[in-house]
């Protein structure tokens, strides 16, 4: 008899806590957060400002170290890895989209998109891949423009292309449409979900946008560092 092996979660968070000590105060930012996310799933994290959404996102991506608990990303227990090793996991498996775009101002749109491939040593065909992705996000005629020469929506599309160019297993987006109006937001959202469908990229969104949150398969509602509702 053969048994069908259950696929491992791409992201597994268990009893995650994050505390800060400062100014004579002990702050609990995250209190025992746990969840699993399977490859290709989409998750939104919602909640009021200061509820710990961005902290949770940073911990999941290995940008920060938890006070306790574990984060397993793409099979790697992030708590056991050094900072350099965590960086390497990010480079291979993670894409990031930030609310404020965070493009490197001294690089052109094309160069910004090529960076993840260069970091992985995939320099062969990197330019073609980056150009293709920029074409997909509708910026084929802006590839040699610097971020300052692009509008907010265009910058976010470049950021999205950069986050996806190396076909990451998981894409973290921290309020990706927070700085954009609804007309500019729609194509960005459509692109993110399109990439999720086509590439099977797992999507983790932090958002205040209730409509965007409803578009994901899973949702974590947070308040004061705790998950108060998940579905």
């Amino acid at each position: 008899m053969t048994t069908q092996q259950q696929p491992a979660p791409i992201l597994s968070v268990h009893d995650l806590r994050k505390d800060y000590d400062g100014g004579g105060h002990h702050l609990q930012i995250l209190r025992s957060v746990s969840f699993d996310l399977m490859p290709g799933e989409t998750l939104s994290i919602v909640g009021p400002s200061g509820s710990g959404k961005t902290t949770l996102l940073g911990l999941c991506a290995g940008l920060d170290e938890p006070s306790s608990g574990t984060v397993t990303l793409a099979g790697h227990d992030m708590g056991t890895l050094s900072e350099t090793e965590r960086g390497s996991v990010r480079a291979r498996h993670v894409g990031f989209v930030f609310q404020s775009f965070q493009l490197i101002g001294s690089l052109t749109a094309l160069e910004n998109v090529m960076i993840p491939l260069e970091l992985l040593g995939q320099n062969k065909g990197a330019r073609e891949k980056a150009v293709e992705l920029l074409r997909r996000v509708g910026l084929e005629d802006r590839i040699h423009h610097y971020p300052l020469q692009l509008s907010g929506g265009e910058q976010q599309r470049v950021a999205l292309a950069r986050a996806c160019v190396h076909q990451p297993a998981i894409l973290f987006a921290d309020e990706p449409t927070g700085n954009l109006d609804s007309a500019t937001s729609a194509p960005i959202v459509e692109l993110m979900f399109g990439l999720n469908r086509e590439m099977g990229t797992t999507l983790v969104l932090v958002t205040h946008d209730a409509n965007l949150a409803r578009s994901t398969q899973k949702c974590l509602k947070m308040q004061d560092g705790s998950v108060i509702e998940s579905h």
Binding site: S88, S106, G121, Q122, K124
Partner: peptide, 26 residues
């Protein structure tokens, strides 16, 4: 665990990045 270290030699990339990053600050 295998980490990215292949392809573009790290030194070449850092030099190239240093050059590109210096734009606008030269």
């Amino acid at each position: 665990m295998e980490f990215h270290s292949k392809g573009l030699p790290a030194t070449f990339w850092t030099v190239s990045m240093a050059w590109r990053d210096s734009r606008g600050q030269r």
